[in-house]
């Protein structure tokens, strides 16, 4: 049996174990909530994890079974999980660690079946795909953190925008008086509004 077939067969077991691993990182009171509350609106964090892990695993299986083709895009699902973790106080290393955990989870669920002849090469390919997603996850996590910083800067700008506009316009009006060219000033204002 091929690794991809094994993964397909044991898909739910792998996912369950994997989700358990991820959720175990939260306090017990919360992990139960994350796991059992099925409402995606009342439990967006749990929903992102459960939906995301399924899609990521399927993506890996697909990439392995069609090695020549472009890997299916799972970055959206990684993003949903990491975007939450990026504001939950995780360090980058622990925020993305869940991807690496898939290696151990898959091996322990598949058990001896994954040690059969010819599996080594397939497992290496599997690990490689996981590593690729892990690197992608680092990128996404860092983008999210940078975005958070950007948000602060943007907010400050929106708060002070009109003040800046005033300051600049007053200045430009002085220049207008000197140059006696009012239309120029108007145009600049229009640009600022963009």
């Amino acid at each position: 049996m091929k690794l991809t077939d094994l993964l397909a067969e044991k898909r739910q077991a792998v996912l369950d174990r994997w989700v358990e691993h991820i959720i175990a990182g939260y306090p017990q009171e919360t992990s139960n909530f994350l796991r059992s509350q099925k409402d995606r609106f009342s439990n967006p964090v749990g929903h992102a994890i459960i939906e995301g892990t399924g899609a990521i695993l399927d993506g890996i299986t697909q990439a392995l079974s069609h090695p020549g083709q472009a890997a299916p895009a799972v970055s959206g699902y990684l993003d949903s999980i990491l975007r939450v973790r990026a504001v939950q106080g995780f360090a980058a290393s622990s925020a993305v660690s869940f991807i690496f955990e898939l290696k151990g989870v898959a091996r322990s669920v598949l058990g001896s079946a994954a040690q059969g002849p010819g599996m080594n090469a397939e497992l290496t390919a599997f690990d490689k795909e996981v590593d690729r997603l892990a690197l992608l996850s680092f990128d996404i996590f860092m983008q999210c953190r940078e975005k958070v910083l950007q948000l602060k800067a943007d907010e400050l700008e929106r708060q002070t925008f009109r003040l800046l506009q005033q300051a600049r316009l007053i200045k430009s009006q002085e220049e207008e008086n000197k140059e006696n060219a009012p239309e120029g000033g108007k145009k600049e204002e229009g640009e600022v509004t963009r």
Partner: peptide
């Protein structure tokens, strides 16, 4: 405020999640 942005983003998630839908 700006300094509690992580808290704000976490608190804003349920609302944003419904908007995302």
């Amino acid at each position: 405020a700006g300094e509690d942005i992580d808290l704000r983003m976490k608190g804003g998630l349920p609302r944003a999640n419904a908007v995302k839908h």
